[in-house]
Design a protein around this nucleic acid. Structure first.
Length: 696
DNA sequence: GAAACGTCATCTTA
DNA sequence: CTAAGATGACGTTT
């Protein structure tokens, strides 16, 4: 039970594992707080969420410190609402900022790879180029009530008029309790929570996959992962609040509703309207905090990115089918109150994922205010509440970025500042345009675009599997499956489950077809890239579309060289990918699998990645990867993959997304994993094999 | 009052 | 398409 807690770093949950009810692991009971020693803090009771050491958020200045009472953080004055000035603007530079202990400047060329040297930039980060104001002025539209619609007045229905007391935040019953609340997280904490959630979810999915034969046994890995996080209190911003949420920026993406719950953006796991009681003078009133517009109701964006027409909740028996009039209660009432109180409401827009239909992407679109509300008859003839929300001015672009990029995709010539239409000259399926919005540079120096690595010697080809059509994760006879260990590396949608020393994809000698789920990175990139001139870091790389965490981005192509040829002084090494200095290629991406008790052999792997002793020279031949800059707070990592030959000394270097990456966000990876690994503690945590385990 | 327990509304996800 | 989900809100009992 007393697994040693190793090298505790603030943002991580390092508590030893305790078996909880239902196979969940819980953190130790309150009287043995794991925090006592590491932080020198007194043990706290489960009553209070521990204050997170790094909790002083640089952006929480707009937000008064939340006390257990609701009173502040909420509007202080009657009627008038806190104008939190420039809500998200100051957060712009948080994105790439290193964790507090680090001294290096956020983004700079990696020490080991001399790429784009001399352009390191100190100090202040400049906002994205492109984020300059090109939003239309929507303010001109006057607030005339909708024709033919009755205006609502608060209190027009009976229900729920009793003054609600703010209840103490309900702690999960059971053994879990809120031991590890990460209160008022900063951006780093938000990332941590999200990465942990998704790591957990992918892991559960992966385990589920191998048990394909048991029908009905297990579904919804998202809910399982979310529940685990919740019961262990592994969340941040767990107190509700009006307005800006620390650590969350406009444009942030979410692929599950639960993700938004865990970081305090929208705490309803299903309902579209989140609200809480707020004190105005003497009265307490429910006001809306955030809404998710997900298209179940007949929401409409009117084509104007700053306006959202939102439908109230209720009246539906099955989703999509309205069978009753909506009532002015719950979320609808809260929205109505928010309309008169004019408080800011966070808006999350849900959209179809074009690359993965059936999947939804949620994007935080910033603060809005309700401008108008009315009742109208829905398609089914029942009453529906309608709310017209107007985006608060002065915020960075949100959904507008999406609209822009979508337009560019349809019509690439509408993209301005283009220097070159297709850097790949047709090699990539999608053109890679080169843009410069910041200076007069006419483009990067010439190189030949290749979409594969160039070997000097011929590589021998491995013997493949004999699966028919597609390899099945539950098929123990699959040769490729064996090589990968007991669990499949990719989900059925091609998302990498976790980082490994080496992934074995099926290859040309395999009998399975191209639809095999064990063929992912070999098929090449599906991302619509853009090479752009950064401010101060030379050329950079970004995507027009959103990228889901774990999905394949691209390969690092170029000429394979032996590491002995590497020489930092050589200019030719500017575009050298050098994995040899990476003691351990594990980022924190697999993190917190220890929330699951697994009967896996303890990681025997580690060694292989440090054996990599080649380099990839992209100076003369390369692809978009050579433009990816370094960051200590990266959103991309690399993963060795083997598929077309047998030689484990020369795997392909494939890049995958560490986090969900919004459109037009620069893609960066950590050039020097060795340093990164020093920040790691997660892999040092002992996994308790003796425990029965979380049954999935 | 506070805490514990019970039920309902919500609609997402596979 | 359908049904199983988890949470928080709200209501009732201890």
């Amino acid at each position: 039970m007393d697994a040693p807690v190793l090298d505790v770093k603030p943002l991580r949950c390092l508590a030893p594992i305790f078996p909880g009810p239902f196979g969940y692991n819980a953190f130790p009971p309150s009287n043995s707080s794991p925090y006592a020693s590491p932080f020198g803090a007194p043990p706290f009771t489960p009553m209070f969420t521990p204050v997170f050491p790094a909790a002083v958020s640089p952006i929480s200045h707009t937000q008064s410190k939340q006390t257990p009472q609701v009173s502040n953080g909420a509007p202080t004055a009657t009627g008038s609402v806190p104008e939190s000035k420039s809500p998200a603007a100051p957060t712009a530079d948080v994105c790439e900022s290193p964790s507090p202990e680090k001294k290096e400047s956020p983004i700079q060329p990696g020490p080991s790879v001399g790429k784009k040297r001399g352009s390191a930039r100190k100090g202040k980060q400049t906002p994205e180029p492109g984020s300059s104001t090109m939003t239309p002025e929507p303010g001109s539209s006057t607030m005339t009530p909708k024709p033919g619609s009755s205006t609502m007045t608060p209190g027009m229905t009976e229900s729920s008029q009793r003054g609600h007391k703010r209840r103490a935040y309900k702690k999960s019953s059971g053994s879990g309790t809120m031991l590890f609340g990460v209160e008022d997280g900063d951006r780093e904490a938000v990332f941590r929570v999200l990465m942990t959630f998704d790591g957990l979810r992918r892991r559960i999915l992966q385990i589920d996959d191998t048990k394909a034969a048991t029908p009905g046994s297990s579904k919804r890995p998202d809910l399982k992962a979310g529940t685990l996080m919740m019961t262990n209190g592994y969340r941040t911003n767990s107190k509700k609040r009006v307005g800006v949420v620390p650590g969350i920026e406009i444009g942030d993406l979410f692929y599950f509703r639960f993700e938004m719950c865990l970081v305090g953006l929208h705490s309803q796991s299903m309902a579209g309207i989140d609200y809480m009681p707020v004190k105005f003078d003497k009265e307490e009133e429910q006001v809306a905090l955030s809404i998710v517009s997900s298209g179940v109701y007949e929401d409409d964006d009117m084509g104007n990115p700053d306006i959202l027409i939102y439908s109230g909740q209720g009246g539906h028996s099955t989703p999509g089918k309205q069978v009753n009039d909506q009532k002015l209660e719950r979320g609808n009432l809260a929205l109505q109150n928010s309309s008169s109180r004019a408080n800011e409401i966070r808006v999350i827009r849900g959209m179809k994922d074009v690359t993965n239909p059936g999947c939804k992407i949620y994007m935080y679109d910033g603060l809005y205010k309700i401008q108008d509300s009315w009742i109208e008859k829905g398609k089914s003839g029942f009453s529906v509440f309608k709310y017209k929300l107007m985006r608060v001015q002065g915020q960075p672009e949100g959904i507008a970025v999406w609209k822009k990029t979508r337009q560019w995709k349809d019509n690439p010539s509408s993209r301005g500042f283009v220097i070159l239409n297709d850097l790949s000259y047709g090699v990539e399926k999608l053109p890679v345009c080169v843009v410069n919005e910041v200076d007069t540079d006419k483009g990067p120096a010439h190189f030949s675009y290749v979409d594969t690595v160039l070997h000097q010697k011929t590589m021998k080809v491995s013997l493949g599997c004999k699966c028919y059509n597609s390899c099945s994760p539950s098929d123990v006879s699959c040769q490729c499956g064996k090589q990968n260990g007991d669990l499949p590396p990719y989900s059925s949608t091609g998302v990498l489950a976790n980082q490994k020393p080496l992934v074995y994809e099926c290859g040309s000698t395999c009998m399975c077809s191209q639809i095999c789920r064990n063929r992912v990175s070999q098929k090449g990139t599906k991302i619509h890239f853009e090479v752009f001139k950064t401010k101060g870091k030379g050329w950079g790389l970004r995507s027009w579309g959103p990228i889901r965490a774990g999905s394949f981005i691209c390969e690092y192509t170029g000429e394979i060289v032996d590491s002995v040829e590497l020489d930092d002084e050589n200019e030719a090494n500017d575009y050298m990918f050098d994995p040899s200095n990476c003691e351990r290629n594990f980022v924190e991406w697999n993190c917190n699998n220890e929330l699951l008790v697994e009967q896996k052999p303890a990681e025997p792997e580690e060694e292989k990645s440090s054996l990599l002793s080649f380099g990839i020279n992209a100076n003369n031949n390369g692809n978009v990867s050579r433009f990816m800059n370094h960051s200590c707070s990266p959103n991309v990592f690399w993963q060795p993959v083997l598929y077309d030959h047998d030689d484990e000394r020369y795997p392909h270097i494939m890049f995958f997304a560490m986090k969900h990456i919004p459109p037009m966000t620069e893609l960066t990876y950590d050039y020097d994993f060795y340093k990164a690994s020093e920040r790691l503690t997660i892999n040092q945590i002992r996994i308790d094999n003796s425990r029965p385990g979380f049954s999935v």
